Simulated scan of single mutants.
Amino acid sequence: MYICIDDTDTLTGPRGTGKLARAIADTIARDYPVFGVTRHQLYVHPDIPYTSHNSDAVIHVETDADDAMDHLFEIAEQVMLDDFLEGSDPGLAVASERQITPSLIVYGQDAKCSVLTQERARTLAKNLHIRLKGLGGTEDGVIGAMAGLGLAYLKCDGRYLQKGIVRSILDSCTVERLFEAGVDEVCSLDGTQYTTGTVYFRPGKSPRFCPVCGRTVVFVKQEKDRLVDDKRD
């Protein structure tokens, strides 16, 4: 199951969409196993209202129970309403893997490079029987909420906000520790793979780890005699 939220924050608000998504994931984890939370970058354009980066967030839940979808929607909706920020335009969408079709995948890809509309998002949701709801303001968040479903399904877009215990790493650590924390591969953009050594991250910042073809990858680059985080989005 995939739960996507978008447009839940404001420029002056106390938290962003990513933090809210992690709160939803923590609440859901009391009842269902959560694989992770991903962030997906959408189109930045003058015609698209957004706060800082125009990104959505998706919670990946490992369940195929017939009654899970309604319960997941209710949990996410309640957490969002309890932490609603005045001036935000949140949207919420929940779908199972079998509901994610080529049309939805293309919609997600379009959302990264073109201006989309609520009408297209709502029509797509209706045709695919996907639960989609605006939870305040203009409800423009339904556009990104639908997009995130298609992008997350491919497991080859964006980056993780939460998976395993990787977020607990806030300084340099060994490649072996990254593997133990939930990373599948540490490599450079030229294809060099690393199974030993120490990777240095910005102090106080966790690694940026990305879903790539279903694998969780940390990209690094060689700087002098050490490996450093090569940030990807």
Results as ranks from 00 to 15, higher is better:
Arg120Trp: 09
Ile165Asp: 15
Phe73Pro: 03
Val44Lys: 12
Val183Lys: 01
Met1Asp: 03
Asp225Ala: 13
Gly150Lys: 00
His40Val: 07
Gln222Ile: 13
Gly141Thr: 11
Lys155Phe: 13
Arg177Gly: 02
Tyr153Thr: 01
Asp171Asn: 15
Ile5Cys: 01
Gly150Gln: 02
Phe84Thr: 03
Gly13Arg: 05
Arg232Asn: 06
Leu81Gly: 07
Gln193Phe: 10
Asp56Ile: 07
Ile165Leu: 14
Lys155Ser: 15
Val217Phe: 04
Gly191Pro: 05
Gly134Val: 13
Gly18Arg: 00
Thr196Asn: 10
Gln162Trp: 14
Ala181Leu: 05
Lys221Gln: 11
Val94Phe: 02
Val106Pro: 01
Asp233Gly: 07
Asp184Arg: 01
Asp229Ser: 14
Val212His: 04
Leu116Gly: 03
Arg122Tyr: 07
Lys155Leu: 15
His129Cys: 11
Gly214Trp: 10
Asp9Met: 04
Val212Asp: 07
Gly197Cys: 04
Pro49Gln: 12
His53Tyr: 10
Pro211Arg: 02
Thr196Ile: 09
Gly137Lys: 11
Glu185Cys: 13
Tyr160Phe: 15
Leu72Asn: 08
Tyr50Gln: 09
Leu81Ala: 05
Gln109His: 05
Ala29Val: 05
Pro203Asp: 05
Ala68Met: 11
Val58Phe: 05
Leu92Trp: 00
Asp184Phe: 02
Arg120Leu: 07
Val166Arg: 02
Ser188Glu: 10
Ser52Tyr: 11
Val183Phe: 02
Leu104Asn: 01
Thr27Cys: 04
Leu116Trp: 02
Tyr153Trp: 15
Cys187Ser: 12
Asp70Trp: 11
Ser103Gln: 11
Glu180Met: 13
Gly214Tyr: 12
Arg15Met: 07
Met69Asn: 08
Glu139Tyr: 09
Thr198Asp: 02
Asp9Glu: 12
Met69Tyr: 02
Asp67His: 14
Phe35Glu: 07
Gly182His: 04
Gln41Met: 07
Ala145Phe: 00
Cys113Tyr: 06
Lys224Ser: 06
Thr196Ala: 12
Thr196Phe: 05
Val58Asn: 02
Thr63His: 10
Asp67Ser: 15
Leu154Lys: 14
Gln41Leu: 11
Met1Arg: 06
Asp66Ser: 13
